[in-house]
């Protein structure tokens, strides 16, 4: 178990390093940074000034080691546009994105697991069909458009929730639905197919032969085994949701990491972009690691290895 965790951590670290190299080299490939920071109206002297100020005149390797050394200490340099420490910006925005992600995950799990279980138990019934229809349409819906539609319906027409802003919890409801709906189909399908498979298993017949109540058979014996891959998927989906927050936070004007990233991208504020890409990648890596460990905890057969 510990050897496994150690090995996975090692891989995770090297993946993180690779991504930071990639982030950095993308930046270098993008042309003369000083020029893009200065903007089209900057004079040659101003550009030279910027170059020295941001250390862009030094060799690439030196720039990289400086950046990565900073990153390890959670220092991602200064933002070109906001004129403040990148890390301060991130720390300020992170809670919004995390709240959004967790809420979206809760919605996705809360919808997909019960629906998947019922669909499997009532296979071929109208409820199964409806669940599959939700899955198919959910995967086909562009999430930014779904978000806009939610705004029109629930914020403008019905006025149940605010259309934008993260000041109150109501502001999170619509974006969390928009983000969570996108992850629901995959988890629901996995729950449904897992339940169908498990319900056919011999140990379910054993449980019934013991005269256990239907609820015990379904929840203790079937769901427990069917849900293992769903939990792993949920962790990975949360990683994807943090990445997908760019779109949803922009649509709903939430002051989170995603919106910060989008603002930074449109203003060529590369230290911020680099930092956010790396942070989200790290989150994803940690989440997949957690997914693996959760798998091992939930499935005794994996624990021994």
């Amino acid at each position: 178990m510990w050897a496994f965790v150690f090995k996975r951590t090692l891989i995770a670290l090297s993946v993180a390093l690779t991504i930071s190299v990639l982030c950095f080299s993308l930046l270098q490939l993008s042309g003369d940074l000083a020029l893009s920071i200065g903007g089209p109206e900057a004079t040659a002297e101003q550009v030279e000034q910027i170059r020295i100020e941001y250390g862009l005149d030094r060799p690439v390797i030196e720039q990289f080691t400086t950046w990565i050394w900073g990153a390890v200490q959670l220092d991602f340099g200064r933002s070109y546009y906001y004129q403040s420490e990148v890390m301060d910006l991130v720390v300020e925005r992170l809670p919004v994105t995390m709240t959004l992600g967790m809420l979206a995950l809760a919605i996705a799990l809360g919808v997909s697991i019960p629906l998947g279980v019922v669909a499997a138990l009532k296979r071929g019934s109208w409820i199964d069909r409806a669940a599959m229809a939700i899955a198919v349409t959910g995967q086909a819906m562009p999430n930014f458009w779904f978000g806009l539609t939610l705004i029109i319906l629930f914020a403008v027409k019905l006025q149940w929730f605010p259309a934008a802003g993260s000041d109150s919890w109501q502001g999170f409801v619509l974006p969390a639905i928009a983000l969570g709906y996108y992850a629901t189909p995959a988890m629901m399908r996995l729950t449904r197919s897992g339940m169908l498979e498990v319900l056919e298993a011999d140990y379910i017949r054993t449980a019934r032969a013991k005269g256990l109540r239907t609820g015990t058979v379904i929840f203790k014996h079937a769901l427990r085994n069917a849900v293992i891959p769903v939990v792993a998927l949920a962790a990975v989906e949360l990683g994807f949701m943090l990445g997908g927050s760019v779109v949803i936070e922009t649509v709903f004007s939430l002051r989170g990491l995603g919106q910060l990233a989008w603002n930074a991208i449109s203003r060529n504020d590369y230290p911020v972009v680099q930092a956010i890409v790396l942070i989200i990648a790290l989150f994803y890596i940690v989440l997949t690691l957690i997914a693996d460990i959760l798998n091992a905890v939930l499935d005794p057969r994996l624990r021994a290895r």
Binding site: D202, Y203, R205, T206, A207, A209, H221, R224, P300
Partner: peptide, 16 residues
């Protein structure tokens, strides 16, 4: 009335 099944490898729930 109790029952014993053919496949001992799969008749027990792996999770408990």
């Amino acid at each position: 009335m109790a029952m014993i099944f053919q496949e001992p490898m799969t008749a027990l729930n792996p999770a408990y």
